[in-house]
Amino acid sequence: MSMTQIVSFLDLAIFPSLALVFFLAAFIAVIWNVFSTSKQEITAAANIPLDDDVVFTPRTPSIDTESNASTVTTPNGGSSHD
């Protein structure tokens, strides 16, 4: 029996439902894992991007009168909502 014949026997109408169940199972597993992770671990991970800024002293001022504060700040980090 060829692969074509085997697959042809499948009831394809059930595919959307099977896919939905498959996804739901994976989704529940991820949700469970996420909510079983400690707050300390989550906070540490969330702060990784804030841990790498380098401050350069501006050589030339902006042509605008107001200073451009957002470009040279060093973040203090913080805690994620979680």
Partner: peptide, 29 residues
């Protein structure tokens, strides 16, 4: 977004847990 928005806002992402769910859900769906 998950890298540059926290940098620009100078605060971590609102919910890191939600970002994990966001990732796997998108990848699966």
């Amino acid at each position: 977004m998950y890298y540059f928005l926290p940098k620009a806002a100078e605060r971590p992402v609102f919910s890191y847990k939600l970002s994990i769910i966001h990732f796997w859900s998108l990848v699966f769906i």
